[in-house]
C-alpha cells in the first residue's frame, strides 16, 4: 500500500494533478452548476468549456516555454511576440486573404524566435537578458504596425479560429490539442526530447557525446516564437482586434508558472508536456474560480503570487531539507 502510494506521489505529475482536482472539487461544492454543460445551437456551453477555451493561448505558449526551460533557458518575450503577430495578422487581413495573413504571422513568430536564438546560441547572451530586448522593443513594434490604434478585425473566417465551434466544441480547443500533440509527437518521434533533456541535465556530458547545443537552442526558441504567433492569432481572432499594448500582457509569467507547476524544473532537464497542460489548466481554473466564487477578480494576482512561491519552495532542496529536519525532530521528540 505505502509502496504504491510512494510510487504515485513521487510521480512529477501527481501533485499538480492533485491540486487541479482539489480546485475542481472546491468548485463542485461551492459553485452550483460549475460542472453543468448546456447545448445551445449545437454548441456546448458551461464553465468547464469556458475554461478549456480560454486556456488555449496560454497553453500553446506554455508548451513552447516548456521546451525552452528544459534547455535551461527562458523566454520572456512571448507576450511581445504575441502582440506583434496579432498586429501583423490583423493589418495584413485588411489587404490580403486569410491564409497569407496567418502564414505571415507565423513567419514573423519564427523570425522573432530566430532572433532570440541567435543572440543566445551564437552571441552567448544570457537567455533572460537576450529575450528582454525583444520584450521591450516588441510592444513598440506592435504599435508601429497598428499605428498606435487598436485594429479591429472584420473577417468572419479569421474570427472563426478564436470564436467558432466545431462539433460542439470551440474551435480553439482543436488548435491547442493539435499543437500539444505535434510537440508530443516530435518529442517521442525525434531525438529532440532526448537531446534537450540531456543538455538541460548535463551540458558537458552532452557536448562530449556529440550533441551541439547551438542547434538545439535555435530550435527551441524558434518553436517558442511560432507558439507565440499561434497564440497571437488565437487572441486577436477571439476579441476581433489587435491591441498592441494589452494583448498577451504578462502571459510570459503565466506561462512560466504553468511550466513550473507542471513539474519541469527551472534548472532544466526532464520536461513534462502533460504537466504543463495541467499547470495551464490549473491557472485558468484558478482565475475562473476566483471569479465565480465572488472574490474580487483582483485577488487572482495575489493568489498567483502565493502559488508561485509555494511551488518554488516545494522544489527547493533547501526548503525540503528544512521540512525534513523539523519532521525528524518531531519524531525524535515523540519517541
Amino acid at each position: 500500500m505505502s509502496q504504491f502510494m510512494i510510487r504515485y506521489t513521487q510521480s512529477k505529475l501527481f501533485w499538480p494533478f492533485a491540486a487541479l482536482v482539489l480546485l475542481l472539487l472546491i468548485n463542485f461544492f461551492t459553485i452550483p452548476g460549475f460542472f453543468h454543460i448546456t447545448i445551445k445551437n449545437g454548441h456546448l456551453f458551461g464553465s468547464l468549456i469556458d475554461i478549456m477555451n480560454r486556456v488555449i493561448p496560454l497553453l500553446v505558449i506554455a508548451i513552447g516555454m516548456t521546451l525552452v526551460i528544459a534547455k535551461e533557458g527562458i523566454d520572456i518575450s512571448v507576450g511581445s511576440i504575441l502582440a506583434i503577430t496579432a498586429a501583423a495578422a490583423a493589418s495584413l487581413l485588411e489587404v490580403a486573404p486569410l491564409p497569407y495573413a496567418i502564414l505571415f504571422a507565423l513567419v514573423i513568430g519564427l523570425i522573432c524566435g530566430l532572433w532570440n536564438g541567435i543572440l543566445i546560441a551564437y552571441l552567448k547572451i544570457q537567455p533572460m537578458i537576450a529575450t528582454l530586448i525583444l520584450m521591450t522593443v516588441g510592444r513598440g513594434i506592435a504599435q508601429l504596425i497598428t499605428g498606435g490604434q487598436i485594429l479591429t478585425i472584420n473577417n468572419k473566417a479569421y474570427e472563426y479560429i478564436g470564436k467558432g465551434f466545431l462539433l460542439g466544441f470551440p474551435f480553439a480547443i482543436y488548435i491547442g490539442l493539435a499543437v500539444f500533440c505535434i510537440v508530443l509527437i516530435v518529442k517521442k518521434k525525434t531525438a529532440l526530447g532526448l537531446f534537450l533533456e540531456s543538455i538541460g541535465s548535463n551540458k558537458t556530458s552532452s557536448h562530449f557525446a556529440g550533441i551541439r547545443p547551438e542547434k538545439m537552442i535555435l530550435i527551441v526558441y524558434i518553436i517558442s516564437g511560432i507558439c507565440s504567433a499561434i497564440a497571437g492569432i488565437l487572441v486577436s481572432s477571439n476579441v476581433s482586434s489587435a491591441d498592441a499594448n494589452n494583448a498577451g500582457l504578462w502571459i510570459e509569467l503565466d506561462a512560466i508558472l504553468a511550466v513550473v507547476i507542471g513539474g519541469t524544473s527551472m534548472r532544466g532537464g526532464r520536461f513534462y508536456l502533460g504537466g504543463t497542460l495541467i499547470g495551464a489548466l490549473f491557472i485558468q481554473t484558478l482565475s475562473t474560480t476566483i471569479y465565480s466564487i465572488g472574490i474580487r477578480p483582483e485577488m487572482t494576482m495575489v493568489v498567483k503570487a502565493i502559488v508561485v512561491i509555494a511551488v518554488c519552495l516545494m522544489q527547493s532542496g533547501e526548503f525540503r531539507k528544512l521540512i525534513r529536519q523539523s519532521s525528524f525532530k518531531k519524531k525524535v521528540n515523540e519517541a
Binding site: 509569467l253 513550473v260 527551472m266 494576482m301 495575489v302 498567483k304 503570487a305 508561485v308 518554488c312
Partner: peptide, 13 residues
C-alpha cells in the same frame, strides 16, 4: 526572477 516576479504579482494584486 521567480521570487521578485511573485513579489510583482503580489504588490500589483
Amino acid at each position: 526572477w521567480i521570487v521578485t516576479l511573485a513579489g510583482m504579482f503580489l504588490a500589483r494584486g
